[in-house]
Amino acid sequence: MAAAREAFAKLKAIDIHVHAEVSCHDPEDPIFGEFADAATHYFKAPRRRPTIPETIAYYRERQIGFVMFTVDMEAGTGIKRIRNEEIAQAAADNSDIMIAFASIDPHKGKRGAMEARDLIENHGVRGFKFHPPIQNFDPGGRMAWPLYEVIDHYKLPVIFHTGHSGMGSGMPAGGGIRLKYGQPMLIDDVAVDFPDMKIILAHPGWPWTDESLSMALHKPNIFIDLSGWSPRYFPEQIIRYANGQLGHKFLFGSDFPLIPPGKWIAAFDEAGFKPHLRDPVLRDNALNLLFGKDDA
C-alpha cells in the first residue's frame, strides 16, 4: 500500500471518476448503445468510446492516476455489464496509475454480496460504484444492505451517483431512469449505519446540491466528487464551501470519456477556487481517501 501511495503521489492528479464503457471481450450491448447515443448528444462527446487499454494509455500520457469502474445495471435496464474482473485485471497490470472499483447490482442480494467479497479478496478491487437511478433502487433501502455490510467490513470507499442523470436525458421517459433515487439525502442513513465506509457523493448533486454539502459538513465519512459537470457551471455554493469549511472533502472527477480530464482541470483553474486548494482537490484529498494519510 505504501509503494502504491508513493507512486500516485508523484502524479499530477487523480481522477476519481472514470467509466469503462467498452469491453475487450464482449460486443457493445444494443440497449447500452441507445443510452450511449443519447449521452453523446447530451454531453456533446464523441460517440466512439475508448477501450480500457486506450484509457490507460490516455491517462498515462498525461500523468494522471484514475479510478475506473463500470455500472452493473442489469436489473434496471437489461444491459449486460462489463465484467468487474476485466477492469480489476487491467488495474493489477497498471497499479502505478489505475485503481479498480467494482459495480454490483443491489438486486442481486446475497449473491451480489458474495461476489463483492470475492472481488475484494481475490481480484484486488479497492472500492465500489452505485448508480441508484439507473440501477432502479433506493440507496437507503434495505435491499442493498448485504452489499454495504461487505464494503463496510473491509473499510472500502464507495461512489454513489447523485443528482441529475445525463444518462437517459432526452430519451423517451428518460430511458426509464427515476431521478428521485439520485437525491443525496437518501444516502444519509447509509452513512450513519456504516461509519467505516467512506462515501463519495458523485457530481455536484444538482438540484439537491445543498443536501450534499450539508451531509459532507455533518458526516466525517462523506466526500463529494466534482465529476459530470464542467467547473464553469458549478452552483456557486460548491466553490464557496470548497474555499471555506470543505476544502478537504472535494475530489477531482471528470466523468471520462464524456468529459476529458484536461478540459475539466482547465475550467477548474478559472472557476474561482483558492490557489492553495489546487493540489488537494486534484490529487491529495483522493490520495488520503484511497491510501490513508501519510504520517511521515
Rank of each mutant, 00 (worst) to 15 (best):
K10A: 15
K10N: 10
K10E: 11
K10F: 05
K10W: 07
L11W: 04
L11A: 06
L11V: 05
K12F: 09
K12Q: 11
I14A: 07
I14M: 08
I14L: 11
D15T: 03
D15R: 04
I16M: 14
H17F: 07
V18D: 01
V18A: 03
H19W: 11
H19M: 08
H19T: 07
E21M: 13
E21I: 12
V22C: 00
V22K: 05
S23P: 10
S23R: 08
C24F: 08
C24P: 11
H25P: 02
H25S: 10
D26L: 13
D26P: 00
P27R: 08
P27C: 07
E28S: 11
I31S: 02
I31P: 00
F32T: 08
G33P: 00
G33V: 02
E34D: 12
F35C: 02
A36E: 15
D37R: 14
D37Y: 13
D37N: 13
A38W: 05
T40Y: 06
T40H: 07
H41Q: 15
Y42R: 12
F43S: 08
F43A: 11
K44T: 07
K44H: 14
K44Q: 12
K44A: 09
A45V: 04
A45S: 15
A45I: 04
A45K: 09
P46T: 08
P46L: 07
P46S: 10
P46K: 11
R47C: 06
R47A: 13
R47V: 05
R48V: 14
R48L: 13
R49W: 02
R49P: 00
P50W: 06
T51N: 03
I52D: 07
P53L: 01
P53H: 00
P53T: 00
E54R: 08
T55I: 14
T55Y: 08
A57M: 05
A57C: 04
A57K: 13
Y58N: 13
Y58V: 08
Y59E: 02
Y59A: 02
R60Y: 02
R60H: 05
R62E: 04
Q63H: 15
I64A: 06
I64Y: 06
I64T: 05
I64G: 03
I64P: 01
G65K: 01
G65V: 02
G65R: 00
G65E: 01
F66A: 06
V67D: 03
V67M: 05
V67F: 03
V67A: 04
M68E: 03
F69I: 02
F69A: 12
T70F: 07
T70L: 09
T70I: 08
V71C: 09
V71K: 01
M73S: 13
E74F: 15
E74V: 14
A75M: 14
A75R: 13
G76D: 00
G76S: 03
T77W: 09
I79F: 04
I79N: 00
R81D: 07
R83I: 07
N84K: 09
N84R: 09
A88S: 12
A91R: 04
A91G: 05
A92E: 15
A92C: 07
A92Y: 03
A92H: 14
